[in-house]
Design a protein around this nucleic acid. Structure first.
Ligand code: SF4
Ligand code: SF4
Lengths: 142, 142
DNA sequence: ATAAACAAGACTATTTTGGTCCTATTTAAT
DNA sequence: ATTAAATAGGACCAAAATAGTCTTGTTTAT
């Protein structure tokens, strides 16, 4: 299916939690895990990836933890997804050297679609998730 | 990862092939399989789904096969994906009754993102894949 | 009747995802 | 110095989703 994975979801929850704290307040993986009901080991892994990509800054040692590395208005959904899931592709043409790639009549167009999606994801910022004008309108839409 | 699956890709190749034929020319699953180097059994399954969703029309019996059920300008990527993969969700909140759903601070915004994506997919038509102004510019874009 | 096609469901294999565990390192506090 | 609380990272396992096969049945032109 065409969806973001659970790790990304947990990452988003973690980041959202961090952005809800007072400026530059360090929080721990443990606290994030408890507040969001996610396994500590798992959320730790995710935070490590976010730290590697410099979306959060880690503070080592006792009293350590994590803080957002940038303002939440400067962290995009694209960055988050890419940090956790890796590059965004629609199809993996390169992988296993697709034998159809020469004659493929759809890859160009699909590439364009991928571009557009990434561009759109870049426009969505972590801060947008705080604004949360709580859309409890859970309409079914397809 | 955030991608369309192989079945959708094969479906797209199949549809693209069908749209390249003369008006209303019936083609067979076998021919589609051979021309696109996809297993017959697999592409048959996919064509069945497309037929169920009325994107293609099946012709029973000997000399039977498949034809596009509508003009290729009226078949959207959204329909194709939904026919093959089912509803497009970004996260499956309903599934397994997510325990966080009450307090969840991200689902509203994510719902909006899903909407937008589906809307975008609706604007992309099968006919766009024929136009294929062959973007051999395989730039890396992330 | 036969053969060529679609229809549909059960089944299996493979890959990806989700999740755990263990060991090492850093550092504040005592 | 020692301890305890934290991150870092890799190996590993389990579960789920995806990809692909097989078998049986139905339709219909010849
Ligand atoms: S068939 Fe086309 S879109 Fe699919 S993997 Fe090969 S090159 Fe890419
Ligand atoms: S945490 Fe929020 S977004 Fe994730 S599944 Fe639950 S309700 Fe949906």
């Amino acid at each position: 299916m065409f969806k973001l994975n659970k790790k990304t979801e947990y990452g988003l929850l973690a980041l959202q939690y961090m952005s809800s704290l007072q400026d530059d307040q360090v929080t721990t993986a443990r606290e994030i895990a408890e507040k969001n009901d996610i396994s500590l080991a798992l959320v730790s892994k995710i935070l490590q990836k976010l730290a590697q990509k410099k979306l959060v800054r880690s503070v080592q040692g006792a009293k350590g933890g994590y803080v957002l590395a940038k303002n939440s208005t400067n962290i995009s959904l694209a960055e988050i997804v890419q940090a956790i899931e890796g590059p965004i592709y629609i199809f993996d043409c390169q992988k296993n050297r697709c034998t159809r790639i020469q004659a493929c009549s759809i890859k160009g167009q699909l590439n364009a679609v991928a571009y557009k999606m990434i561009d759109y994801f870049k426009t969505i910022k972590l801060s947008d998730f705080s604004t949360e004008i709580s859309k409890n309108k859970q309409e079914s839409f397809q």
